[in-house]
Amino acid sequence: MPQIKRSQIAGMNIHYLFYSLDYFFAAQQKAGIESIELWGGAPHFLMDSMSYADCKKVKQKAAQHDVKIVAFTPESIIYPYNIAAPDPDQFEKSKLYFTNAVKAAAELGTSLMTINSGYGYLNEAKEEAWKRSAEMLHHLALVAEKEGVTITMETLRPEESKIVTTLEEAIRMHKEINSPAFKIMLDTVAMSVAGETMEDWFAAFGEEIAHIHFVDCKPYGHLAWGDGSLDVSKQFEILNRYQYKGFLGQEITEMKYFEKPDEVDQRIMDHLTPFFND
């Protein structure tokens, strides 16, 4: 019997980049999406190493549309802030930025913040970049423990990083950080690019998987469900078998979705609805 609930689908605002935050919240309510993984990028949520947006106002906007922010995802790829920044000044500013992100997550009322390993230079030894990544993640885990937030780390594609891009590397980093506030996020795109399966990840991590970026792919492309090659019924079968209780973030990043993002989200929900138990 299906166990995944509609409320576990978490809409994301990254493909609403050219629309207001109010428009995004209204579109989620219309599509029947109850939970939100808030992408912490401008213009929706302005944050830097010194300050961040008024979380109270953002929460009020969400409440006006009967949606709840359940996870916070600070932008960490296209901005100058980098978990494993190779320049010392950039590293320190990145530390302030991601520390702010943990605090913002707490103020937004969510207990989840998503992150990745960052990236280093291609012309340096991988272990040097790994050390910086681990140092930053360890620091953030300590902050998260104090703030009552859980950090969930995803793998990246090889084009984005050479640090944590596989299940094996995720296992190593998880053991190295060794904090109750540091758990794992499964990204179905990075998983597919690495030739791995959801079964592999749950077998390795079990309940340590605290969040999932649950999207279709070919294996590249963060696609709307139905536009890729993943067998959605198989994914739900695994989620149900392992009794997954976390959220399923809809991290849609392909530019072709940016003009009519509300129509895309409605199509996603129509595609996934048969697999909900409510």
Rank of each mutant, 00 (worst) to 15 (best):
H213Q: 04
H213I: 00
H213G: 00
H213E: 01
H213L: 03
H213D: 04
F214E: 00
F214S: 00
F214Y: 05
F214V: 01
V215I: 09
V215G: 00
D216A: 01
C217V: 05
C217E: 02
C217M: 07
K218M: 12
K218I: 08
P219Y: 06
P219S: 06
P219K: 02
P219C: 05
P219W: 04
Y220R: 14
Y220P: 12
Y220W: 12
G221I: 02
G221D: 02
G221W: 07
G221P: 08
G221E: 03
G221S: 08
H222A: 04
H222F: 05
H222Q: 03
H222R: 05
L223W: 09
L223V: 06
L223G: 00
A224I: 09
A224S: 14
W225G: 02
W225V: 08
G226M: 08
G226R: 09
G226S: 06
D227N: 12
D227Y: 14
D227S: 11
D227F: 13
G228V: 00
G228R: 00
G228E: 00
G228Q: 01
S229W: 11
S229C: 12
S229D: 14
S229K: 14
S229A: 15
L230P: 01
L230Q: 10
L230E: 04
D231I: 05
D231E: 11
V232S: 03
V232L: 10
V232P: 06
S233E: 14
S233A: 14
S233P: 09
K234A: 15
K234C: 11
Q235I: 07
Q235L: 15
Q235M: 15
Q235G: 10
Q235E: 15
Q235C: 15
F236M: 04
F236T: 00
F236Y: 03
E237P: 12
E237R: 11
E237G: 14
I238E: 07
I238N: 08
I238K: 09
I238S: 03
I238L: 09
I238W: 11
I238V: 13
L239V: 10
L239Y: 01
L239R: 01
L239K: 04
L239A: 00
N240S: 05
N240A: 03
R241D: 10
R241G: 08
R241E: 13
Y242E: 07
Y242S: 07
Y242K: 11
Y242I: 06
Y242W: 13
Y242M: 09
Q243N: 15
Q243R: 14
Q243H: 15
Y244K: 07
Y244G: 05
Y244D: 05
K245E: 15
K245S: 14
K245I: 09
K245G: 10
G246Q: 07
G246C: 02
G246S: 07
G246N: 04
F247E: 01
F247G: 03
F247I: 07
F247D: 01
